[in-house]
Simulated scan of single mutants.
Amino acid sequence: MKTNKKIPPVIIHILVWIFFLVTSASQIYLKIGHIPSDFIVRSLLLITAFYLNYSLFVPHLLLNKKVPLFFLVIIAFSLFFLFIMQETLPRPNFKPPGDFGMQENEMPPKKPHPFLLNFRVFFPSGGLLLLVFAISTSVKLGIEWFKSEKKRVLIESEKVNSELSFLKAQLNPHFLFNSLNSIYSLAHKQSKDTTNAIVILSDLMRYMIYEANKELVPLEKEIEYIKNYISLQLLRLKDSSNVKVNIHGNLNYGIEPLLLISFIENAFKYGTDFKGKTNIIIKIHVEDELLKLYVYNSVSHQQPKNENSGIGLENIKNRLKLLYPNQHTINIKNEKNSYEVNLMLKLKKL
C-alpha cells in the first residue's frame, strides 16, 4: 500500500539553505581561491534576516496592512545589519590568487567612521540583504495565499455538502410524513391548531428553500426557524410538559444558516422514551457577540442508534472548525441516560 508522506517544511528549509551555502561558497572559492573566514557569520546574519522578515515582519505588519511601518522596519533592520557587518566583520580580500601583500605606494585601508556606512560594503552586502528580504516576503506571501485559497475551497465545499445534507434531512419523506401526520391528527380532532400547524410547516419549508443558500442570515430569522421547528415537533408529542425552551439576548447579528438545528433535531429525535415522555432543555443566550447554546435530552435505552445522526453531528463540528476557527468551543457529553451539548460561538456582524 502506497503512503503519501509529506516532507516536513523544516527539512525543506534546511535543504534549501545547504544548497544556497554550498553554491555561494563554491562561487567565492572559484573567484578568489579561498573561502573568507567570516563567510559563515555573514551567512548566518542573512539567514537571521530572512526568518525575522518571514516570521515577524510580514505576518505582523504587511499582512495586517501596516505597509508604511513594514518598509520602515525593513530599512531600519537593513541599516542595522550592515552596521554590524561593517563594525564586527573584516572586509573580505578579493585579490586574486598569487597577489600577496601591498605595493610599495599602497596605503592601508582606512577604517570608516563608526556611524557612517562604508558604501563599498553597502552595495554588495546591502543588495544581497535586500534580495533576502524580497525573497522571504515573496515566499511568505505565496504560502499565505496558498493557505487562504485552500481554506476558501474547503469552506465552499463543506458548505455545499452541509447544506445539501441538511436540506435532504429536513425535506426527506420521513420528516414530511411525521409533520403531515401531526397535522392530520389535529384536523381529525377538529383542533383549532390545524391551520397554525400548516402555516408553521410552510414557513419551515420556505426558510429552507430561500434562506439556506445564503452565506449569512440574520440571527433573528435563524432563531425564528428554530422556534417554528420546535413548535411543529411539540404537535406530535404525547407529553411535552418537560420540554423547556429559553431564548434571550440581542439577536442583531448574522450566522450561517442551519448551523444550530442539528443539535435541536437530535434532541427531539432521541429525547422521547418508550412511554412517550420527553425530557428536553434548550437554552440560547446571546451577549456581546457571543452565542451560548445548551441542549439537553434524556436518552431512552429502547431506541436504536442511528448512524446518520452521528455523521450529521460530525459534519456540524467540521463545519464549525472551517467557518469559525478559534472562534468557537463545543463540548458534548454523551452519557448513559442523557446527552448534552454546550456550544459557544462568536457571532458575525451583518
Score class of each variant (00 low, 15 high):
2 K>N: 11
5 K>Q: 11
11 I>N: 00
16 V>F: 05
17 W>V: 01
27 Q>D: 02
28 I>K: 07
29 Y>P: 02
31 K>A: 13
33 G>Q: 10
33 G>K: 04
35 I>V: 15
38 D>N: 15
41 V>W: 05
46 L>F: 15
51 Y>T: 00
52 L>E: 02
55 S>I: 07
55 S>K: 02
56 L>D: 04
59 P>Y: 02
64 N>V: 12
66 K>P: 01
69 L>S: 12
72 L>A: 14
73 V>M: 13
75 I>F: 12
75 I>C: 08
81 F>P: 00
82 L>G: 03
87 E>I: 11
88 T>M: 07
89 L>Q: 04
89 L>D: 07
89 L>W: 03
93 N>P: 03
93 N>W: 05
101 G>R: 08
102 M>K: 11
103 Q>R: 09
104 E>M: 09
105 N>D: 13
111 K>R: 14
113 H>D: 15
115 F>D: 06
121 V>F: 00
122 F>L: 14
124 P>E: 11
125 S>Q: 15
133 F>E: 08
134 A>K: 01
135 I>D: 00
140 K>Y: 03
153 V>P: 00
153 V>K: 13
153 V>D: 07
153 V>Q: 09
155 I>Y: 01
155 I>P: 00
159 K>N: 08
163 E>M: 15
163 E>H: 03
164 L>W: 07
164 L>D: 01
169 A>Y: 08
170 Q>Y: 03
170 Q>H: 07
178 N>P: 09
179 S>D: 01
180 L>A: 12
183 I>A: 13
187 A>P: 09
187 A>N: 14
189 K>R: 14
190 Q>F: 01
190 Q>T: 10
200 I>N: 13
203 D>F: 12
204 L>H: 05
204 L>K: 04
205 M>A: 13
206 R>V: 11
207 Y>L: 14
207 Y>E: 12
210 Y>G: 08
210 Y>E: 15
217 V>I: 15
217 V>Q: 08
217 V>M: 06
219 L>S: 08
220 E>P: 02
223 I>L: 15
227 K>Y: 05
227 K>D: 14
232 L>V: 00
234 L>K: 14
235 L>E: 05
235 L>N: 10
237 L>C: 04
238 K>T: 05
239 D>R: 10
240 S>L: 01
243 V>A: 05
244 K>S: 13
246 N>Q: 12
249 G>W: 05
254 G>P: 04
254 G>L: 10
255 I>N: 06
256 E>Q: 07
257 P>D: 09
257 P>Q: 03
259 L>E: 04
259 L>M: 13
260 L>N: 06
264 I>W: 11
265 E>N: 14
267 A>I: 06
271 G>K: 05
272 T>H: 05
272 T>F: 02
275 K>P: 00
282 I>E: 12
290 L>F: 00
291 L>Q: 09
295 V>D: 02
296 Y>E: 08
299 V>T: 14
300 S>F: 06
301 H>L: 10
301 H>I: 10
305 K>F: 10
307 E>R: 01
309 S>R: 04
311 I>T: 14
316 I>K: 06
319 R>V: 06
320 L>P: 01
321 K>M: 07
322 L>P: 07
323 L>C: 11
326 N>S: 12
328 H>T: 11
329 T>H: 13
329 T>V: 12
329 T>Y: 05
333 K>S: 15
335 E>Y: 04
340 E>V: 04
342 N>F: 10
343 L>D: 06
345 L>K: 01
348 K>F: 09
349 K>W: 02
350 L>K: 11
